[in-house]
Nucleic acid binder design. Structure first.
Length: 274
DNA sequence: GGGCAGGTCTAAG
DNA sequence: CTTAGACCTGCC
């Protein structure tokens, strides 16, 4: 068990903002999350978080990495606030919101599942996949299942995929797995590309469009200069900035290298705060 | 019960 | 290049 200072981190708004799908709210208001190779439970107490885990090895390091706690959000928030008055007001309402740094393979598959889908069903499919193919972890007298690795998923058939409730996305996941069969380093190689090339490389896979590719790059690769544009964000932009039709270039030219966080703030405001 | 869900593909103009 | 339609499926 470890304790970390709260230090301007809003756990709840971050975890329940639709970035991750492996979180469970407990009756004591703590949150249990399955991440990478372990299960963690985080309880907010006064000015700190008390964190227990199925595996205490490097726990602090993993927590800091996952919740992006080493990044200077204060600096970025100032940067965004100076760029734009409306953003400045949104920033103040999302203080403590972080962009999670999640597993590449997990985001790769999870966000393919997310297309034209709702959070409940996405979480259900991801959970089923994990139960069927991931490692079981006993934590706090309950069974949890890690998201399966590529090795654990590579031989799944189309019909097996279909049985996890992913629907027509089965063939997209299949083609994503095939991409990794052809090039096992694909997900690591993405790291070396600039953001535009990385988007393009991901979008070569059937079932990955601009939105899903952006989610993968923002939530697994920390590319703060890319961003998912969805109906909520479109609505927010249209409401506050007239006559924008190219949302991508609007966000890039207005919010620069941190446009990804800016867009997430808009999403969070529109979806969860308003 | 019909429609919808943080989209994307495909087929046509 | 742009744009309708179709698409699995469970839950409101």
């Amino acid at each position: 068990m470890i304790r970390i200072k709260k230090n301007n981190f809003d756990l709840i708004s971050t975890v329940f903002s639709g970035q991750c799908f492996r979180m469970f709210e407990e009756i004591d208001k703590s949150v249990t999350i399955v991440l990478k190779d372990r299960v963690v439970n985080i309880k907010e107490c006064n000015e700190e978080f008390v964190i227990s885990s199925s595996n205490d090895e490097n726990l602090e390091e993993i927590i800091f990495s996952y919740f992006d706690l080493n990044r200077d959000y204060n600096y970025i928030n100032c940067y965004l606030s100076k760029k734009d008055d409306y953003m400045s007001s949104i920033v103040k309402q999302s203080l403590g919101y972080k962009i999670l740094s999640q597993d590449k393979f997990e985001m790769f598959i999870t966000y393919i599942i997310s297309q034209n889908n709702n959070v409940k069903r996405i979480a259900g499919s991801v959970q089923k996949l994990s139960v069927m193919y991931g490692k079981k972890i006993l934590f706090d007298n309950k069974d949890y299942y890690l998201f399966p690795s590529y090795e654990e998923m590579k031989d799944i058939s189309l019909s097996e995929l279909r049985s996890t409730g992913v629907g027509f996305r089965d063939k997209y996941i299949f083609s994503a797995l095939n991409k990794l069969k052809d090039n096992p380093n694909f997900l690591n190689d993405i790291e070396k590309l600039n953001t535009e090339d990385a988007l393009e490389a991901l979008m070569e896979i059937k079932g990955i469009g601009l939105k899903v590719a952006s989610c993968i790059l923002l939530f697994a690769y920390g590319r703060f200069d890319t961003f998912p544009i969805d109906t909520w964000v479109k609505q927010n932009i249209s409401e506050h900035y007239k006559e924008v039709n190219d949302f991508k270039s609007f966000a890039k030219s207005t919010f620069g290298e941190y446009s990804g966080l800016a867009i997430q703030y808009m999403f969070n405001y529109e979806r969860n705060i308003k």
